[in-house]
Design a protein around this nucleic acid. Sequence first.
DNA 1: GCGGCACCTATCCTTTCGGATAGAGGACCT
DNA 2: AGGTCCTCTATCCGAAAGGATAGGTGCCGC
Lengths: 204, 204
Amino acid sequence: MRLLIADDHDLVRETLAAFLSNEGQFEVDLAEDLPGACDKIRTDGPYDLVLLDYGMPGMNGLEGLAEARAAQGEKPVALMSGTATREVAQSAIDAGAIGFMPKTMAAKSLINAVRFMAMGETYIPLDFLNAKDEGPVSPLAERLTGREMEVLSGLCRGLANKEIARELDLQEVTIKLHVKTLCRKLEAKNRTHAAMIAKEAGLM
Amino acid sequence: MRLLIADDHDLVRETLAAFLSNEGQFEVDLAEDLPGACDKIRTDGPYDLVLLDYGMPGMNGLEGLAEARAAQGEKPVALMSGTATREVAQSAIDAGAIGFMPKTMAAKSLINAVRFMAMGETYIPLDFLNAKDEGPVSPLAERLTGREMEVLSGLCRGLANKEIARELDLQEVTIKLHVKTLCRKLEAKNRTHAAMIAKEAGLM
DNA sequence: GCGGCACCTATCCTTTCGGATAGAGGACCT
DNA sequence: AGGTCCTCTATCCGAAAGGATAGGTGCCGC
């Protein structure tokens, strides 16, 4: 199984190559930037899998991915990064990458991940995708009080102020106050907007 | 590597076992329902991985998963199913399953998936997760006209009728009409509710 | 003890929504 | 030619939302 690893960090590139070569089943080629990688692909034919560092010279975000994919033809291209977020990983997949590997990944998982991707299976570490519930919660939720969260919950169910008031055993005017505060804190222009922002942020 | 496969369909169970045993690296035990599987786990010690059929006798949805997990201790338990939806798969992961395998999965991917999960890595086929954007679109979106979708888009951005009217170069009353229609079609009680339903369904 | 904060209530007012009803033009199909 | 559907418009009305302002309570930390 022939791989191409492209990374501008010498240490990362060499250790990855050494580790994978050591498995016996992989034959690893190296490149240190995107143009170098594309040249390699074009001269030495498509690889079973190409691994590109997300932050290496020539990549320019996801643009470099398209170039490498063009050179690879039908064969898969994956990205790796030490810093990228879930959003980037998802965008990479949407842009046609066969997978996305954080550099923090356990070495033994790496072997299987590479094998997976060379086989045509998409791969992203799932804890990477599932983590989306925790991150964005705080920046917004921290600023909301308990009552406000309760009212927000009502908003997101499309309830009228009067209904929320009944549910929380309060006066309608009070709900209006909370809604106003919520709109201010969430920078929403009205209740609908506030509900959408909350939904978008994964608060509800 | 020791596996336990529990499935009430003889054919599935036997072929899976044969295929995995053939790889040489797996030692496969079998069970044909949940109680049988749990007994096996308790008597023959925890396995490196337990595969449970989602629809087998004794499972009762995700309840059986908890039971098997209790017997397995720290070791991983995965579900498999031929019919289950993304939602079920996600719930399974949330309930502590190490992975979820559709029975439609390519056999060669299966080997790696099993190895992955035995290793403690979560696994779900990604096309399974990403498909969520397409499925739920039609049932709702089909019933909405082009104009209605445009108005709905405004709703989801928290715009007032007047603003939507300006954007689409229409009269405000017309927007009110569309909003009313939208609420009826989406079975929403008001604009906020309609926006949330649209968001929930992935329409926006 | 006092300020700050979260919380609750009240009154007044304007704007927006939501619903009912009615009319009319255009596209498409039969 | 008639029917159906989408589209846009109009008027009227009551209900809801949104904003401003002015209170009151209780809890906590300084």
